[in-house]
Design a protein around this nucleic acid. Sequence first.
RNA 1: GGCCCGUUCGUCUAUCGGUUAGGACGCCAGGUUUUCAACCUGGAAAGACGAGUUCGAUUCUCGUACGGGCUGCCA
Length: 471
Amino acid sequence: MSSQIITRFAPSPTGYLHIGSARTALFNWLYARGRGGKFLLRIEDTDRARSTPEATQAIFTGMDWLGLDYDGEPVTQFERAVRHADVAHELLAAGKAYKCFSSQDEIAAFRDQARAAGRSTLFRSPWRDVEAANHPQGAYVVRIKAPQSGKTVIADQVQGDVTINNDQLDDMVLLRSDGTPVYMLAVVVDDHDMGVTTVIRGDDHLNNAARQMTIYHAMGWQIPVWAHIPLIHGSDGKKLSKRHGALGVDEYHAMGYSAAAMRNYLARLGWAHGNDEFFTDAQAQEWFGFGGIGKSPARFDFKKLSKLSGQHIATTDDAALLHELQAFLAVTGAPKLSDQTAAQMLSAMYCLKERARDFAELIDKAQFILAETPITPDVKAQSTLDNTGISILHELTPHLQNVTWTRDDLERVTSQIAETRGIGFGKIAAPIRAALAGRTATPSVFDMMLVLGRQDTIARLTDISAKEITD
RNA sequence: GGCCCGUUCGUCUAUCGGUUAGGACGCCAGGUUUUCAACCUGGAAAGACGAGUUCGAUUCUCGUACGGGCUGCCA
């Protein structure tokens, strides 16, 4: 028997990978990876009506983007339905579960009455202790016999010991009247069969844990370590929904955030390690533990995500950034970079990455590489190309023919013009910027010159100054 | 309705009975500057409320308020 930690992420395919689910996945991943354990993936698709191959694919795609790698092949819960049903039948045979012939209509009517009268809506099946000889023909569900007195204590790693009076527990359904297993049974069986030692999941399952314990006890299985983490809320403190912005992780990818930053931000949302804010995966894995998990729901803050994204982009190596940039372009449907453009992007990355918070911004700052020539200045850039601006370009161009193409020499040549004219360097840079990029917000003019090279730089300057003359 | 959980600056959080209640994002002011960004310095900004325990409560207990969850033949 090994003491290896085994965690799992068990999303249901609902169309996209929810950002809150992604954080749950991250926590499980961090916990397992930081302890040399295994991290498994299980698709909870027992609800056939809501499960589609596309939705399942969206989970894989999201996990892949976030870099949350899992061990082995993903388990599909639906494929294990026979095993789940076997367990239910085993409990039935052992007298720990029973056939309930109450119809859904009967139960619904009971609940309506109970609610109206202000009583508990907990349904007590009249069939719990009826002998088989007295069973009618017809459809039935299989219900577990839950304890009706005493207390159940959930030893939760985040919430502490949570005590539930057993009179709150219902005899939950294990098998539907068509014989298919329900989720509550499937999770328990799968977690047990997969050897899951530690379950980190949303605290919407906290109450369910008490009910699931009934199954564990009935089967004589060991209960996993549970950690129920608070949900993520929208900026108004309400449950995160569409009106708060993006729900699916694919949307965050399309917005251009760095995947490393997503991991960093999501980890920090509801978990803390002292005052550490910016950290690597290795650090997160080393530091992550139950002690640092908060008990209250956290609100999603795009501003902070942005900041972290910028920091991660600035500290990621250039080649990796080019890769991530190309993946970003692919999800947004933008055309692929040509080999030449990609090479220029790579050579410019050192200056692009320290001024971009996300890949959309990075592309924007790289406009001088991507724009078609001849450059067409926008309105603001055009305003720097007055007579003075044009004359600066005229004066500079010949110098660029002979100067060695290094930053020092380019700076020297350009500064000389500023000096002789007795104006600030900014006045010189503005028209150059306009000519090279056609806009006013760009990397340093010297960075652009170095990336573009002598030929292209001079061509752009002459394009502009020539055009102005003919106007 | 019943049961369960939560509540520190606007936001994410540190604190594990004794602190001028710390950090980060954002915001404001200043600096640097070649535009944008980045960066540097400074500033405003918090213990939901009410009791109790204690020499001493943000921290422990109870109540109230507010928020969230569960209460399905959904997951």
